[in-house]
């Protein structure tokens, strides 16, 4: 048995201000809170999904200053002042983002749990100006696992949205 080192006092919560989907969120969270948990548990934005918490599945993909990242692998406190975009911020009111509309039309999902990450990843892929042939889309969408196996429809959705020059 290890020696009792006394009570473990976790790090103290500190004020952290995040800009998510253009809105200011003043949170009081421990510095060890991941960006993913800050969104889901503290900012009431559970659209971003936790699939593995290990950076292996891509379900937690968000855009930080336009770049796609796994929000489970970074701490919220590191992103004060950054522009964070989640699935909740993609549509313009009732008007879907073209990538969202393409996923719906091409049935690019089943259970929907990987979908927010897939869509944000796909939005970033277009912004990255990757070639939009099948092989390239498949390669650059491979950081987002879909266990339902909707890959073919995801590729079709990304290609279709890409053709609209979004």
């Amino acid at each position: 048995m290890p020696v009792d080192v006394g009570p473990r006092a976790g790090p103290h919560p500190v004020p952290v201000t995040l800009t998510i989907n253009g809105m200011r969120h003043d949170l009081t969270i421990e510095p060890r809170v991941t960006l993913l948990d800050a969104l889901r548990e503290y900012a009431n934005l559970p659209g971003t999904k936790k699939g593995c918490d290990q950076g292996t599945c891509g379900a937690c993909t968000v855009l930080v200053n336009g770049r796609r990242i796994d929000s489970c692998l970074t701490l919220a406190i590191m992103h004060t002042g950054a522009r964070i975009t989640t699935i909740e911020g993609l549509a313009d009111g009732d008007r879907l983002h073209p990538m969202q509309a393409a996923f719906l039309e091409h049935d690019g999902f089943q259970c929907g749990y990987c979908t927010p990450g897939q869509i944000l990843s796909a939005v970033a892929l277009l912004a990255e100006k990757r070639p939009l042939d099948d092989a390239s889309i498949r390669e650059f969408m491979s950081g987002n696992i879909c266990r339902c196996g909707a890959y073919k429809n995801i590729v079709d959705a990304v290609a279709a949205a890409g053709k609209q020059n979004v």
Binding site: I87, L90, L96, L104, D107, F109, G112, I119
Partner: peptide, 12 residues
């Protein structure tokens, strides 16, 4: 299209 699709693609 899936009738629950909109909720899934908007994160709601």
């Amino acid at each position: 299209d899936r009738v629950d699709g909109r909720r899934k693609i908007t994160g709601t």
